[in-house]
Design a protein around this nucleic acid. Structure first.
Lengths: 413, 413
DNA sequence: ATTATTTTTTTCGAGGCTCGAAAAAAAGAG
DNA sequence: CTCTTTTTTTCGAGCCTCGAAAAAAATAAT
């Protein structure tokens, strides 16, 4: 049941909306905020005065915006960079990056390290992350705002509470309680998110025109990940982070997947699957742990060069992804798709088969209208998405606390 | 952008919530409404006084609820049956049912007819529906409330605006503008909904404990339909009613589907597909237009009786549905599933292969925990869902108008 | 029969929020 | 230096919800 809207929720919601408007618009004037939010000028004036007093917003120096118009010049409002900071952490295979982000979204410090994730113990992994954050915070200058939130993105499956890593290809261990460990170590609230979900958050923030209501992000690397945004909201499953596109079944009882099952899309389109096909190995051969980037780029080059096993391998990959996308389009209708990760640099050899497969599915009639955005380097997107996710939490739950959150399960609607 | 919450929205939202609480609870007292909504007793008192004055709610006669407790007895509030009426229309193959529903949700009058939908013209179909509604309204007694909404459920694909039928197996015609035609004829707002979506609405209303956040309804008949509820809200696609589970691809380039494509789940699990397999025909044989119920029941009986082609046909059907559900579970995590329609009466011969298939998919480890509700007769559910959908509209958009609807695409979240 | 107790519902004043109108502020135009 | 234009702030009005107290309506106790 949606809980009743009480009188004090009103101000909190509108505060959150003003903060959101400033974060999106960058340097809006009070008048612009009023126009965007639909609230009156007087209300915006009151709320922004509060937020400035609390150090959350800051007025730009006068004269910065050369108005060249008649009338009193607009005063630009911006997020006060020192209102807070957040930590954005991206953990992937043999790679760990932690960043300190100020409240305006600017990265201040990075800490990059290369732990051997596959061979570490679970507690070793937790310690590596803790140590990276520790180094980051140690380098933090005193005039920055307090650290109010950390978000950790990991390739793999996280739980729906965003507390732990349930399973990941980067480590043989499961159920690693990252959030508890980091919160104990630093006393700062932490969430653990799926990397593709953070990519989706980043894309929505960067290109809200294109990525708004429904869209999919697909990460092509050794495994296949997906971020799913439906009705403008990141979809996470009831138990897990959800969106296991790579483990939808492409061919019943088909090729051997790394997950132990058979016929998953990943077993045709993951790096190891393409590698396996290109080498002429059986579909049931044990998947290779990880294929390095140079090898994959060489396979793609060979596929471009001549019609051989490499080309066939990428063709099979495209077919698997295409049929999978076709199933998504059948469920959700066609929507924008972003292809992220190293695999997108081979998209030219994947695309023909992919489109051919889509044309055989329910979304086929819209094939021509479906465009794919490519982004070979996923790491900056993951970092960016984590930062946005953490900042949104600060905006909504710390700087506009208590706002009536719509609980799942509407009244009758 | 979510629009700002203005002061008068507050009352409207809380009005809607009180109405919703009464609709759900049946005959709650003011105190119970206050507890459920989280609003104060004084607010509930004010709002319910307004709603009673406007004839939307009605106080139950005193003495009806024998309290047997100390203290002032609770006064039960109920929906005033004469506050409004709505029309619920279910159109399926050769069958048309229109019902007049009072504001409390009780059906008053039914009009059942059997138009030959497959052979009618598009305008003939519209006229048949218009005539049925006309007969219904002609029989309406004057003391009933005004008709404020009509909802028409049809098997097939409707547009996302719920204005027209884009495609349906019950007629060769497409893009039939039912909503415009009915609104012109009767001057009452109309929506055109997918039948499976209405089944989902009905189930959520009937068993909110089981069907709340995420769940699926699957209709097994000549085609395969699906209703998809995610986060408590009916999911409809961006262009269409969405949820074309039956046309997710089960086997790439597989059996011939009625939709013209190949390998769809429906091409293995639709009645015509089971029939085709059981008769030993090729997977590529032209699908039969419609199989009557008795034939399908006989096939199921034969499958139960001996291990022959019939059993194999149902096995293939179960396998297709199982892999499809497995893909859904991969995307959304396992969730309750309701199997509706005549096919559910053969679920015993479908289930083994279905579960076997699910166990090979990403949701497989939860196989034992997944239970299926069966409901062979879908028509009452469709009628019920339509009525609920229409009444919810009246509750929210007519009796609590102007409430700030959360527009798609949240601010930053 | 009357009083006490309990529970529900209504009443009433207080406080908070947003809004519109008017005023103030801050620039360019003439 | 005054007029015009635009933005921002100020101020009173009008709602809405809330908590406390009062009223209402029943049972339990004396």
């Amino acid at each position: 049941m949606t809980v009743g809207v009480r009188h004090d929720d009103l101000r909190r919601r509108n505060r959150a909306m003003v903060i959101a408007a400033v974060r999106r618009a960058g340097q809006p004037s009070r008048t612009e905020i009023a126009a965007v939010t639909g609230l009156s000028n007087s209300t915006i004036s009151t709320i922004s005065a509060d937020l400035i007093e609390e150090g959350i917003l800051a007025q730009a120096k006068t004269g910065e915006t050369a108005a060249l118009k008649r009338g009193r010049p607009q005063v630009a409002l911006g997020l006060n960079p020192r209102a807070a900071t957040v930590v954005s952490i991206a953990l992937s295979l043999n790679s760990l990056s932690a960043s300190l982000i100020d409240y305006s979204g600017k990265a201040i410090i990075h800490d990059i390290s290369r732990p051997a994730t596959l061979t570490m113990t679970a507690s070793g992994l937790v310690e590596a992350v803790t140590a990276a954050v520790g180094r980051l915070l140690a380098r933090m200058e005193p005039d920055h705002g307090p650290v109010l939130r950390m978000t950790l993105a990991i390739q793999g499956i996280t739980d729906s509470e965003a507390r732990k890593l349930m399973w990941s290809p980067i480590t043989p261990h499961s159920d690693i309680q990252f959030a508890n460990a980091l919160e104990t170590a630093f006393g700062i609230p932490v969430t653990v998110e799926n990397d593709c979900n953070m990519i989706a958050v980043a894309l929505r923030g960067r290109a809200p025109d294109r990525y708004r209501d429904n869209f999919f992000t697909i990460l092509l690397s050794n495994g296949i990940g997906m971020g799913l945004v439906l009705r403008g909201e990141l979809f996470t499953g009831s138990h897990s982070s959800g969106g296991e596109f790579g483990h939808m079944i492409h061919v019943p009882d088909g090729a051997q997947c790394r997950c132990g099952r058979r016929g998953c899309i990943e077993a045709y389109a993951g790096n190891y699957a393409i590698f396996r096909h290109a080498r002429g190995e059986s579909e049931y051969a044990q998947p290779a742990a990880d294929i390095d980037d140079a090898t994959m780029l060489a396979l793609a080059a060979a596929a471009r060069d001549h019609d051989g096993r490499e080309r066939e391998a990428f063709r099979k990959a495209g077919e698997a992804i295409g049929f999978g996308l076709g199933s998504l389009f059948a469920l959700f209708d066609p929507a924008p798709v972003a292809i992220v990760g190293l695999g997108s640099s081979a998209f030219d050899v994947i695309e023909p088969a992919l489109r051919d497969a889509i044309s055989k599915t329910a979304g086929g009639q819209h094939n021509a209208a479906i465009s794919f955005d490519l982004e070979p380097d996923e790491t900056p997107l993951i970092r960016d998405g984590c930062a946005r996710q953490a900042l949104t939490f600060v905006d909504q739950d710390i700087f506009a606390p208590g706002a009536a959150v719509e609980t799942a399960g509407k009244a009758v609607a």
